[in-house]
């Protein structure tokens, strides 16, 4: 039986962050469906925002779980989140829209919750971890992993249907007839990049901010900053799949969001620091 060793008082309660994160992630994922309704790709950036809101929720879940000192390091939590999430997400993309409304995000949510719940049961009972938050945390984390990967898919390709992620067409190029399945989110292996972009962004904030001086708003701001940083990379990748104008919108949103959250994070770090010295990266060499 492990002992809870870090205070969690202060800040928004976890339930609120969970509900807020879940609702805003689903809303953002469904907003990417405007692409289909308006027959453009301009709303792909909502996928990135869905990914960031999911990550903010997930990093707070990691905080709740790792407060118990699970002994395996914080990164392992991010790895199991995305390891179980990618499995649920890939199957969920196969579910076709019902009556024009896409079901994939809801299916991903349910499927990931089931996988996460069983993994939580395994760790808590079969492996005898006996950590009170374990089952709920692993359930939430699998959902976060699945939904943020779906966000990445929507951001990069403009949609999240299985057919959209694996377009198999014959393309005429200078080398003759070429199958286009390797120019896709799944076939091109971009999903592996998205996997690690998300897994690092979800585990880094608590790993960096843990300790007696932990402050909730600072950690969540760092999560948003990591999320936007991942979104910049993903937005660059989206140039290969969606129109240049739409990809530019995603890139602009990502860069503006990153600049704002980075600035805010530096301000919060200065607020929480005992003292700070603005050491110049390059020393002034005049007079030498």
């Amino acid at each position: 039986m492990s002992v809870k060793i870090e205070v969690i008082e202060g800040g928004i309660p976890h339930q609120k962050i969970m509900i807020g994160g879940l609702v805003s992630t689903l809303v953002c994922l469904y907003l990417t469906y405007l692409n289909v309704l308006t027959n453009t790709e301009m709303f792909a950036f909502f996928g990135g925002l869905a990914m960031i809101t999911a990550l903010i929720w997930g990093s707070h879940t990691i905080k709740v779980l790792c407060s118990y000192g699970i002994g395996t390091g914080v990164p392992s939590a991010g790895m199991i989140a995305f390891g179980s999430g990618v499995i649920a997400m890939l199957l969920a993309t196969k579910f076709a829209p019902v009556a024009g409304i896409p079901t994939a995000p809801i299916v991903a949510l349910v499927l990931a919750a089931v996988i996460g719940f069983i993994l939580g049961y395994i760790s808590n009972n079969i492996l005898n971890m006996k950590i009170p938050a374990m089952v709920q945390a692993l359930t939430e984390m699998a959902v976060v992993g699945a939904l943020s990967l779906m966000g990445f898919a929507a951001l990069i390709t403009g949609g999240f249907s299985f057919a959209g992620l694996t377009p198999v067409k014959i393309m005429v190029t200078s080398q003759g007839l070429v199958s286009t399945s390797q120019y896709s989110f799944l076939g091109g292996g971009l999903i592996a990049v998205a996997f690690l972009l998300g897994a690092i962004a979800i585990q880094h904030p608590f790993n960096a901010c843990l300790g007696p001086g932990w402050k909730q708003d600072r950690m969540l701001m760092l999560t948003a900053e990591c999320g936007f940083l991942s979104m910049i990379v993903a937005a660059f990748m989206s140039f290969a799949f969606i129109s240049t104008k739409s990809a530019m919108i995603s890139l602009l949103v990502a860069i503006l969001g990153w600049a704002y959250t980075y600035n805010q994070y530096i301000c919060l770090s200065k607020r929480d620091a005992a003292a700070w010295l603005d050491a110049k990266p390059i020393p002034d060499m005049e007079g030498h």
């Binding site: 699970i70 395996t72 390091g73 392992s76 939590a77 790895m79 199991i80 995305f82 390891g83 179980s84 999430g85 990618v86 499995i87 890939l90 993994l119 395994i122 760790s123 492996l127 971890m129 799944l186 076939g187 091109g188 292996g189 999903i191 592996a192 996997f195």
Partner: peptide, 20 residues
């Protein structure tokens, strides 16, 4: 890619469970 991604996901799940 699909087999590779599922293998990576399964690998991480198993490794973390063993870590626990």
């Amino acid at each position: 890619a699909a087999a590779g991604m599922f293998a990576v996901g399964l690998f991480l799940v198993n490794a973390v469970l063993t870590a626990y």
